[in-house]
């Protein structure tokens, strides 16, 4: 349980805090996946884990490995870039697929036209 690389005290506290914070944010996002009550509201939940959750843990590991000086930080940068680009793509595709299905089924919760809200505003 308590095996970990040996860092100076400040780095150990910093890395520990960042990692726990990142994990907590990811957990809040996943709780949102359970608690929010419609599909379109739930789509917002995973972005918490994919932004600050991933960010916290990656910055923690960057601090850890740059203090240890064991390897370059390219993996963290790559993972961060990859997650920032891919998560929106998945969520957008999923939302559009779901909107398409809801429109085909005539679900009243989704606007049948993209302009619904504009028309409502302009009267």
């Amino acid at each position: 349980m308590s095996n970990a690389p040996l860092l100076p005290l400040w780095a150990a506290i910093l890395v520990g805090t960042l990692v726990v914070l990142g994990a907590a944010i990811a957990l809040i996002g996943s709780i949102g996946l359970l608690r929010l009550n419609s599909f379109y509201a739930r789509v917002h939940a995973p972005t918490l884990g994919a932004t600050l959750g991933v960010g916290g843990i990656l910055i923690g590991s960057m601090v850890c490995f740059s203090v240890l000086q064991s390897r370059p930080l390219i993996h963290e940068v790559l993972i961060a870039l990859f997650v920032t680009i891919t998560t929106p793509v998945t969520l957008m595709l999923l939302a559009r697929a779901s909107l398409h299905r809801d429109r085909v089924e005539g679900n009243p919760e989704v606007p049948q036209s993209d302009l619904a809200s504009l028309e409502r505003r302009d009267g």
């Binding site: 996002g29 379109y40 789509v43 917002h44 972005t47 918490l48 929106p88 957008m92 909107l99 993209d114």
Partner: peptide, 28 residues
């Protein structure tokens, strides 16, 4: 813009109509 809006929690880019320039968003 799509990446920015979808990446920030609370807003979700759903559909963009290039001819009219309208964007359908979902906001929490």
């Amino acid at each position: 813009l799509a990446i920015i809006l979808t990446c920030t929690p609370g807003t979700l880019w759903v559909n963009h109509d290039p001819t009219r320039g309208t964007l359908l968003l979902h906001v929490l």
